[in-house]
Design a protein around this nucleic acid. Structure first.
Lengths: 162, 162
DNA sequence: AAAAATAGTGGGCCGCCACCTACTATAGGT
DNA sequence: ACCTATAGTAGGTGGCGGCCCACTATTTTT
């Protein structure tokens, strides 16, 4: 119901910051994950690659903590990334329970491309904003996100089982 | 991974407008729908109530068009709202295929409360922003949303079947 | 050596969401 | 009357996402 649909969305909804935020967020998420999907990846994959790129190798546990992902889910994500050759798993010889996960060159390259995709999406979506406005928007969102109690990358207080 | 978790989120991600947007949007959506869930409602219910309040009675078809919802899904939503006594369905005597949907007083009151909940959530989430900043944020989001190609309330270019 | 804790895995559950396919009832066009 | 189109409905499909449990391997504690 943007400009496309003949009937406008209810102002009552658009007047609510929360609702509007969830709407645009959904759109962003959708477009982004569409792009990633064309490479067989999902948002979590990108998140993991980014975490590794930003902070170096992690144990899976640490990745879980950083990204607020369930360990069992992380296992699956890591498994797939390993399949793509984007990460490397090595048993920690000191504590053989642990698996240390590190980025491969392939992974680093992949991440670069993914970031490129993300930038493309934002250029699409944020077209109506000037550069200044984008920067402001970004800083606002960052403030909000940073303050959010447990507003993890995963924001798990979502729809799970009540 | 906000302030709560010891390990920060990857800056690479937080630097991407799109990602950040999807993150905060997800948080907003999650909190909002949690609130609504405590009343047995979901976002779509609120959307329908809002549409009726803003534009008066609709046929279901019109509601579908306005909110970009599949007719069969709309039937279910409407069914539930009718069960709660929040809307009234009347067969259009002129064209007996059509069902005209209108708000009841109960529904109007419910909507008011839901809007209150949404405001509460936004006060929570947007606490770190000043009033001015919130207004700016809102206007940015509105611009983005309004421009979005087919960025309907439903933003269906999401995860459905490719 | 036994018990308890920890790291990773595999499998499954459930809710949400968007979509699609009939099917019924009614209306309109010829 | 007949064919076609439209409004609403019922039911089902499939992906995704978050979560939980049970199990194995290993380490730590006592």
């Amino acid at each position: 119901m943007g400009p496309t649909s003949p009937n406008p969305a209810p102002p009552t909804l658009l007047g609510l910051h929360t609702y509007l935020l969830s709407l645009t967020g959904k759109a962003a998420r959708g477009r982004l994950s569409d792009r990633l999907a064309s490479r067989g990846l999902r948002l979590w994959h990108m998140a993991v690659l980014a975490a590794l790129a930003d902070f170096g190798p992690h144990t899976q546990r640490d990745l879980c903590a950083r990204l607020s992902v369930d360990p069992s889910d992380m296992a699956k994500i890591v498994e797939q990334l390993a399949g793509f050759g984007q990460i490397e798993r090595t048993r920690d010889p000191a504590d053989r329970r642990r698996v240390s996960v590190g980025l491969t060159d392939t992974g680093r390259r992949a991440l670069t491309e993914l970031v490129g995709e993300a930038r493309a999406v934002q250029d699409e979506m944020l077209a109506p904003l000037t550069g200044d406005e984008r920067a402001q928007l970004h800083s606002f969102l960052l403030k909000v996100f940073t303050a959010g109690p447990g507003a993890g990358t995963g924001a798990r207080a979502d729809q799970g089982r009540a």
